[in-house]
Design a protein around this nucleic acid. Structure first.
Lengths: 216, 216
DNA sequence: TAAGTTTTTTAGTCTTATCTAAAAAATATT
DNA sequence: AATATTTTTTAGATAAGACTAAAAAACTTA
């Protein structure tokens, strides 16, 4: 199949290109992967020869359908392993990313099929991100965030928009996780900050945080 | 830690050096790893600089204690993952080796600790090979084989000496697995071949096969 | 022990994926 | 529009790990 490095580039490009499929710049890829632009150019040429991306010099890259599906396979593996780590091995949601970054490169269709079955064919990972199925289709992503609620509204946390460790650890400390019931007590319309009720306690959060928590 | 390639060399040397810790030749390593002797020489020098092996030109290598422990860590991971694949994902014992070869290189102490707990701290892998603990200690290996039994003796299969796919698939076809009750009906002393009772049926096996099945 | 064979090492090359430094193209600024 | 700045690409180098071919050392065997 594809090399570890190729898979990582495909994944990065997938995440950067967004819903709309805009062109992804060399520098954007270099930043995300913590590598140099010249390395990115090299790899892009390689991916382009393998018809995983379309590439016009100085104009960035787009994933081809083949490339998109390859990226989704890696993402599927990553998210299934995250479910495994949290549900079966009792890791917390801020601990699983680094390990899943390794596990996502294990090559075996059968392994992933069986892991999927073992986990009960889950639709979302521990951060609430949707898990693509074998063919690269996935349930629609959540779109309502805590910031959309107003005074006295209630919601259940179903995921997070950003999932860097700092943020997840903050949520852990305040007992916010998937399934948590949240009530908005007092929202400050000026900056979106709000006082909420969570796990029996009151907590004041910034608008930025409220915007990163998906709610249903 | 160590690179994937280094880990594979350490594992190969460990398996080749046997109980006694004899010197392992360059060619033996090359054969086992399906690579060229010149590549082995290169890697040996590298491992030697890292004090994982002792090496004298033209005289083969020995693992140092540090190297032995590093090899055992990889073997521990390999065997724990094999247990996972068989017990949790319903793979058969001939299917797990190739996948475990990949999984054994995942780096995370915590992952292995938790996997070990999740699996109930198993002492043997699906082929009956002992699983080293965190510190590299393991239960004594089985030593009685089916070939040691004689007419009317009974035993339970607890492992296999060789575990190549062909052999394991042969055992699968004849419903021989760990825990199988075996009775020797008629042993031919000349070549060690024997007629046995297994899974309610009679089966004739060669002395070579009888010598590869561990019994308790 | 001298010749022949096998094993092991050396020397040099290749591939993958990086990097730095410099050149080229695109974009922004006055 | 000309100049300055940023982005991207090219050119050349490096490191890991493998390879081939040839040299060197170690062993067989007569």
């Amino acid at each position: 199949m594809y090399s570890l490095s190729e898979e990582n580039y495909l994944k990065a490009i997938y995440h950067l290109q967004g819903e709309t499929g805009e062109a992804v710049s060399t520098n954007a890829i270099a930043d995300r992967m913590e590598t140099k632009a010249s390395s990115v150019t090299d790899m892009i040429k390689k991916l382009s020869e393998k018809t995983l991306v379309t590439y016009v010099k100085y104009q960035g890259v787009h994933l081809t359908e083949e490339g998109r599906l390859a990226a989704l396979k890696v993402i599927r593996k990553h998210r299934l392993w995250e479910v495994f780590l949290v549900e079966k091995l009792q890791f917390t949601w801020d601990q699983v990313h680094a390990i899943a970054e390794q596990l996502e490169h294990i090559q075996s269709e059968q392994l992933i099929d069986r892991l999927n079955t073992f986990l009960g064919d889950p639709k979302f990972d521990p951060h609430g991100d949707p898990i693509p199925d074998k063919d690269g289709n996935f349930s629609e992503h959540h779109n309502k965030v805590l910031a959309d609620l107003t005074d006295d509204d209630k919601g259940v946390c179903v995921g997070v928009k950003e999932s860097d460790d700092q943020f997840l650890q903050y949520l852990n400390r305040h007992k916010i996780g998937i399934g948590s019931q949240i009530t908005v007590l007092d929202k400050e319309e000026y900056d979106g900050s709000m006082l909420i009720q969570i796990a029996g306690k009151e907590l004041f959060i910034s608008g930025e945080i409220a915007n990163n928590i998906y709610i249903n």
